[in-house]
Design a protein around this nucleic acid. Structure first.
Length: 782
DNA sequence: CAGCTATGCGCC
DNA sequence: AAAGGGCGCATAGCTG
C-alpha cells in the first residue's frame, strides 16, 4: 500500500503536461455522445487517456483490474476475512436513480486496490466493451459482503449505496462514512474543500507525495466512455484514499483509537456511530422511495396560480404605465444607466433606481438605503411597490414550487419526487434537503394588497400525497427547541414547567403580556380553543427563539411593537424568571471560548474558532518596528510582532471608546505604522452562534434519533410504515390506510422514546392526511 | 457558455 | 451602534 503512493509527480508541471491538460479541459463542443462524429469529445478522451497513461507508466501493476469471476471471488473472500472493505463507485452522473453505474473500486488490506468495470462502452464504436463481469455475478459476490456483515467504508456513502442498490441490486448498510466522520470531527471544514481528495491531502498526506490533481481531467466526459485500461488507473485511488482517511479518523472516533481518551471523543464518537451512521439508512430509504405527487391537484393549482400571476403582472403593468413618462425622462437624462428596455422590475438594481432615483422615495431602513425587500416595499406603501409585492409572491410560489415539483417528479420512472437529504447539511448537524428542497415548502397563506388571502400553504403542500392505499402521517415535536434548552440549561423552573405539563412559550407570553398563564395557551383549562391565547403564545415564540439565538433587544422590541426600554424590561424579566437559562447563555459562551467548540446534548461538537480570536490583531507595517534600523543586521529588527503590552493597551483603547471615536482611533493607530485586523464582527457572530448551535444541534440529534427509532421498529415495519420527509422538528411518513391508527400511536411513541435521555417530557402531535396538510383525517372514522 | 455573487424569500 | 440562527433556490448581473 505504501508503494502505491510512490507515484511520479501527478502535477502538470512540465510544459508538455500543461499543454495536454489544457487540451483535455477544453469545453466539449458537441455533447451528443451518441454521435460517432463528435470529434471534439473523442479528441478530449484520447488526450485524457494519454495523459493518465503517461503519469502511470510502469505503475500498472500496483492496481488490480478485475475482469474474471475467480478474481472477484478471491477479493471478496479476503474482504470477509479482513472484515473490512472500502467501496467507491464510478457512474455516468450524479443522479443515483437516473444515471447508471460504470464500475466499482474496492480495497481491502493486503490486496491491491481494484477496479471492477461494469458498463464501459467504446467511445469509437459505442458498443459495450468486452470482458466486464455480468451484473448478476457482481451482485452475488457483493451480497456475500452484506450477508457476512463486513464493515464497509465509504466517502459519501449514501450516493454509492444507492447506486449499488439501484443498479447492481445489493443494499449495503454503511459502517463508516468518511465525509460524515470529517464533519463530526470538525464541522468547520471549509466549504468547497470537503472532497475526499481535499480531506485526504489535509490529514493523510504528510508531504509524502504530491496530490493527484487530474480530477478535472474527465470533467464532462461520461465515465463509461473512458477505456477500461485507463479508467482503472484513475479510479482505483478513491477506495484507498477512503481507507487512509478512515484510519486517520479512527484514531479519534474508535474507542480504541489513540486519541479517543485524550481528546474526550466519547461524545463525538457516540454521535458518529449511534446517530449519524445509524440514521444514514433512514435517509437512503427516504430518498429512494420518494414521495407521491398529486398530478391532478398540480394541474388545478397551476391553472389557478398562473392565472393569478398574469392578473398581478397585468396590474403591475397598468400601475407602471403612470410612471413610464418619468422613467423615460430619466433614461434620456442618464444615458448608460442600468435600466433595461423594457424595464425589468424583477431586477433589484433597476427597481432601486425607480424607487430611489426616479420616484425620490426614501428607504425606511437606514441600513439598506437602496433595499427592495418585502419589508421595505410594504413600508413604502407606494402603488408600484404594492403591485410588485403581489407579483413577487406569485412568481416565487409558482416557479419554486407549483411548476417545479411536478416537473421534478416527472423525471423519474415512478413519477415520485426524489429529493436529496444532506445528512450533515448544516454545521449545527441539521439536515438539509435539495434537488428539490422539501424542507421549505410553503406552510402559510399570504395576503395580497387588496386583502385577498391566498392559501399557498395548503395549495402547495397538497401536491405531496400518500401513495395509493396509503395515508400520510405528520408528527411534530411541540416546542422541540425550547424543551431541549430546558435540558441543556438544567433550568429548574423550565424543567418544572414541562413536568407540570405547562408550555414555556405560554409562560413567557404571560410575562410579555402581563396576563395569567391560562390566557396565553392555545386551549383554555376547559379544553376550548382560545384565539387570543394562541396569538399571545405565537408572539412569544419568536421572542424566546430570539433570546436563544442572540437577537438584539432593539430587534425584539421591533417585533413586539414595543420600544427599546419595554423590550429590555421583558428580556430581563424572562431571564429573571428562568435564572438557569441566563446562566446557560453565559456558560455556553465560556465553553466556546475555552475549547473552541460547543456541544449538544448527545455530544455533537460545532467548532467556533472565532471565539478564541483576540478582538484586534496588530502588526507593524512592512515589518518595520518603530525603532527599525535599516543598517542593523539583527533579525529581530524586522519583526512585525507588536509587543504584548502594546497590544493590550491598544485593544483596551479600542474597546473602551464608543462607535464614533473608534474609527478615529483606528486611523490614528494606522498612521503610527500599525496595521489593525478587526475581529469584533466575527466574534459577535460567533457569540450568536454559540447558543444556537447547542439548541439547534441538540434538536437535530433528537430528530435523527427518532428516525432511527421509527426505521428500526419491528411492528411499524410490518405495518408498512415508511418515512418520507423529515422537516427539522417534524417527520412526514405514510402507511397503509388500514394501519393508520396503530401507526399513529407508535409513531408518536417512538418519537417520544427517542428523547429518553432528556430530563423533560416530550409531546408529539400526529395528524393524518390523504395529502400533506390537506383535510385532517380523524383516526376513528377510518 | 458556465460559474460565481448578491439579493430576496420559502421553511424550521 | 446594532446585530437572531440554520438552510436551498430563483433571478439578475457579472466574469472569464
Amino acid at each position: 500500500m505504501a508503494g502505491f503512493f510512490n507515484l511520479p509527480s501527478s502535477r502538470a508541471t512540465t510544459k508538455k503536461d500543461q499543454q495536454l491538460l489544457k487540451k483535455v479541459t477544453q469545453p466539449i463542443q458537441d455533447n451528443n455522445i451518441k454521435l460517432k462524429g463528435s470529434g471534439k469529445l473523442i479528441d478530449r478522451i484520447q488526450a485524457a487517456c494519454s495523459f493518465v497513461k503517461s503519469k502511470f507508466e510502469g505503475k500498472e501493476d500496483s492496481l488490480l483490474l478485475i475482469r474474471e469471476e475467480q478474481s472477484l471471488i478471491d477479493y471478496i473472500d479476503k474482504a470477509i476475512e479482513n472484515n473490512r472493505i472500502s467501496i467507491d463507485t464510478e457512474t455516468t452522473g450524479l443522479n443515483t436513480i437516473l444515471d447508471d453505474i460504470v464500475g466499482i473500486c474496492i480495497h481491502t488490506e493486503g490486496l491491491k486496490p481494484a477496479y471492477i468495470p461494469i458498463n464501459h462502452v467504446s467511445y469509437i464504436t459505442n458498443v459495450k466493451c468486452n470482458d466486464q463481469l455480468p451484473v448478476d455475478f457482481i451482485r452475488e459476490q457483493f451480497q456475500r459482503l452484506v450477508d457476512a456483515d463486513v464493515k464497509t467504508y465509504w466517502f459519501n456513502a449514501p450516493f454509492d449505496i444507492k447506486i449499488l442498490g439501484n443498479h447492481v441490486g445489493v443494499w449495503f448498510t454503511p459502517y463508516w462514512d468518511c465525509y460524515i466522520a470529517a464533519m463530526c470531527l470538525n464541522s468547520d471544514e471549509k466549504k468547497g474543500e470537503k472532497s475526499l481528495k481535499d480531506l485526504r491531502n489535509k490529514y493523510c498526506n504528510d508531504g509524502k507525495g504530491e496530490v493527484l490533481t487530474f480530477g478535472k481531467l474527465f470533467e464532462g466526459i461520461p465515465f463509461n466512455l473512458i477505456p477500461i485500461d485507463v479508467a482503472y488507473l484513475y479510479a482505483a485511488h478513491d477506495a484507498i484514499y477512503t481507507d487512509e482517511l478512515a484510519d486517520f479518523q479512527a484514531q479519534y472516533l474508535e474507542p480504541n483509537g489513540i486519541y479517543y481518551e485524550s481528546h474526550n471523543m466519547q461524545g463525538v464518537s457516540n454521535v458518529f456511530f449511534n446517530i449519524e451512521m445509524k440514521s444514514m439508512p433512514t435517509f437512503i430509504a427516504m430518498e429512494n422511495l420518494g414521495t407521491a405527487i398529486d398530478y391532478e391537484h398540480a394541474k388545478k393549482i397551476q391553472e389557478k396560480y398562473h392565472k393569478l400571476t398574469d392578473t398581478m403582472q397585468q396590474n403591475l403593468d397598468n400601475v407602471l404605465e403612470d410612471y413610464m413618462g418619468q422613467i423615460d425622462e430619466y433614461r434620456r437624462s442618464h444615458p448608460g444607466c442600468k435600466l433595461s428596455d423594457p424595464i425589468n422590475l424583477g431586477s433589484t438594481q433597476q427597481l432601486a433606481i425607480v424607487l430611489y432615483d426616479i420616484l425620490g422615495l426614501k428607504s425606511p431602513d437606514k441600513e439598506k438605503p437602496r433595499g427592495t425587500d418585502k419589508e421595505i416595499l410594504e413600508q413604502l406603501d407606494h402603488p408600484l411597490c404594492n403591485a410588485i409585492s403581489d407579483v413577487r409572491k406569485f412568481k416565487k410560489v409558482v416557479s419554486t414550487y407549483i411548476d417545479k415539483m411536478p416537473e421534478e417528479a416527472s423525471k423519474y420512472p415512478d413519477k415520485r419526487i426524489h429529493c436529496k437529504f444532506n445528512q450533515y447539511g448544516a454545521e449545527t448537524g441539521r439536515v438539509s434537503s435539495d434537488s428539490p428542497n422539501l424542507q421549505n415548502i410553503p406552510s402559510r397563506s399570504f395576503k395580497l394588497k387588496d386583502g385577498t388571502e391566498i392559501d399557498s400553504g395548503h395549495d402547495v403542500r397538497q401536491l405531496f400525497t400518500a401513495s395509493p392505499g396509503y395515508i400520510m402521517l405528520s408528527c411534530d415535536y411541540s416546542g422541540q427547541e425550547v424543551r431541549v434548552t430546558a435540558h441543556l440549561s438544567q433550568d429548574e423552573k423550565m424543567i418544572q414547567a414541562y413536568k407540570d405539563g405547562k408550555d414555556v412559550y405560554s409562560e413567557i407570553a404571560s410575562i410579555i403580556f402581563n396576563v395569567p398563564y391560562e390566557e396565553c395557551c392555545e386551549k383554555r383549562p376547559d379544553g376550548t380553543y382560545s384565539k387570543e391565547g394562541k396569538e399571545r403564545r405565537a408572539t412569544a415564540k419568536p421572542v424566546v427563539l430570539g433570546i436563544l439565538y442572540g437577537r438584539g433587544i432593539a430587534s425584539i422590541g421591533e417585533q413586539l411593537h414595543k420600544n427599546r426600554k419595554e423590550a429590555q424590561a421583558i428580556y430581563d424579566k424572562v431571564l429573571a424568571k428562568f435564572p438557569g437559562l441566563a446562566m446557560f447563555l453565559e456558560e455556553s459562551e465560556d465553553m466556546a471560548r475555552e475549547y473552541g467548540y460547543v456541544t449538544t446534548v448527545w455530544g455533537r461538537r460545532r467548532q467556533l474558532p472565532a471565539m478564541q480570536l483576540p478582538y484586534y490583531e496588530f502588526t507593524y507595517k512592512n515589518g518595520m518596528t518603530p525603532d527599525f534600523d535599516p543598517l542593523s543586521d539583527e533579525e529581530t529588527n524586522y519583526s512585525t510582532e507588536v509587543p504584548e503590552e502594546e497590544v493590550r493597551r491598544l485593544t483596551n483603547r479600542l474597546l473602551r471608546c464608543n462607535y464614533k471615536e473608534r474609527e478615529l482611533i483606528k486611523e490614528k493607530i494606522r498612521q503610527s505604522g500599525i496595521n489593525i485586523k478587526d475581529n469584533t464582527g466575527h466574534i459577535a457572530k460567533a457569540k450568536r452562534e454559540v447558543v444556537n448551535s447547542r439548541v439547534q444541534g441538540s434538536s437535530a440529534d433528537l430528530t435523527k434519533l427518532a428516525q432511527i427509532e421509527l426505521f428500526n421498529h419491528k411492528e411499524l415495519k410490518e405495518l408498512g410504515f415508511r418515512m418520507l420527509i423529515p422537516v427539522h422538528d417534524e417527520i412526514i411518513a405514510e402507511c397503509p390506510v388500514e394501519n393508520a391508527k396503530r401507526c399513529a400511536e407508535l409513531m408518536s411513541q417512538c418519537m417520544i422514546n427517542a428523547g429518553r435521555d432528556l430530563c423533560v417530557p416530550l409531546t408529539c402531535d400526529v395528524e393524518l392526511f390523504y395529502s400533506w396538510y390537506g383535510e385532517s383525517i380523524d383516526v376513528n372514522t377510518l
